[in-house]
Amino acid sequence: MNPSMVITEAPGLFTADGLTGLIFLVMMAVTLTGGIIACCAERLIRAIAGLIVCFIGVAALYYFLNSPFVAMMQMLIYVGAICITIAFAIMLAAPEESRKKGPAGPLSGPLGFISAGLVTFGLIAMAMRTTFTSYPKINNGTVEEIGIAFLTSHSMVFELISIVLLIAIIGALVIAHTGRSK
């Protein structure tokens, strides 16, 4: 696609652009549906299922945006590791029906709707006022290119991630250690 092209009218459904748009909309729908299920489910385990659907939608978006590596990492880490860990914790902690209990927080009800509406309105207003310019593809998003970028131009990010992971490991060890001595 021409990078400076601006789409003025909606393309037909059976053109390349139209089908691309349709696929994009389907992915958005999957992500949003997952998110809504995750927020509204009464059972925690269903909320996890919604979160997984949401993550898969996001992974599909990454793939759609020419980053297969990031998409696969999203699947591997978020779906394969984080969601399973959360589900595991729920199963160990609450083996019986774990429905919502207790009084609702101060943000539920009208206040919640108002704040959500404000955020949505703000985001829409911001999106409408921005003029989007499309850039040409930077690279193919292959492992090699990402690796080179990580170790040359973006090495700071790489180091920071290592420090975060190191802190997480030390924290886990500290928690496990105090748990053992009790």
Partner: peptide, 19 residues
């Protein structure tokens, strides 16, 4: 070009089915 990663990514979903 990320074939190995893709197989592992999908294989990690298998645990979800069992859960």
């Amino acid at each position: 070009d990320i074939g190995v990663l893709m197989i592992f990514a999908f294989a990690s979903m298998g645990a979800m089915a069992i859960l």
